Simulated assay, not measured.
Amino acid sequence: MKHALRIVVIIPDMALGDDQEEHVQQQLERSRSLRMGLLQAQYDVVATLPADVFLSERIAQLRPDLIIVDAESEARDALEHVVVATRDERRPIVLFTNDQDTSHVPDAVAAGVCAYIVEGLAPQRIRPILQVAMARFRHEESLRAELKDARDELKDRKTIDRAKGILMQRQALSEKDAYDKLRKLAMDKGIKMVQIAQRMIDAAELLG
């Protein structure tokens, strides 16, 4: 049986003035409803955290599978903290909000938000929303990994081509013979061909 999804809920700072007590109570009720919906959907809410300067450290310690940002007009500030907190280790982010101003949706998506839900706290909606968010995150991470692999491969090819050029120039070898020599050296030493190529480049630069 798969483990329950470990979730951290990020809520805005509730330290507001007395004249905003009604707003605070509404936000607290929203947050309570969200947490209840998550528990009813059998998710594991490991913590409810404020969006503050300590968020990075707390998320690193808790290592949640998914982060939910529960915010209204404070969504932009909360997202900035979450983006900083997940910069080194990306995690899916879902934003629940009652804020009807969606002008900053593109910025939120660019920051890594997998789902931007306006007035979507109905318990029966939570599970499909999070399932879609997780699927989208995994798909994007797969594409990101493929892009990284392609960039690394291109970089390796350029390094090998540069090392071949050094051999061709200094030992009067053909391109094929230079390639074969690099490959044989890599096989003899039991390392990747690009590593041999980089060592050759470094030696050539050192010796001039």
Results as ranks from 00 to 15, higher is better:
A15H: 15
D19P: 01
E21Q: 15
H23E: 12
V24H: 11
Q25V: 02
Q27H: 08
R30E: 14
S31I: 07
S31L: 06
L34A: 06
R35K: 09
M36H: 13
L39V: 14
Q40H: 09
D44K: 11
V45E: 10
V45W: 10
T48N: 14
T48I: 05
L49E: 12
P50N: 10
P50R: 12
A51P: 04
D52Y: 06
V53Y: 14
F54C: 07
S56R: 12
S56Q: 13
A60Q: 06
L62G: 07
L66N: 02
I67F: 02
A71M: 06
E72A: 10
E74N: 10
R76P: 00
V82N: 02
V84F: 04
V84A: 13
A85V: 06
T86Y: 03
R87V: 00
D88A: 13
E89F: 11
R91I: 09
P92H: 02
I93S: 01
V94M: 03
V94E: 00
D99V: 01
T102L: 01
S103V: 06
H104Q: 13
P106N: 08
A108P: 06
A108V: 09
A110H: 06
A111G: 08
A111M: 00
V113K: 09
C114V: 04
A115N: 12
Y116A: 04
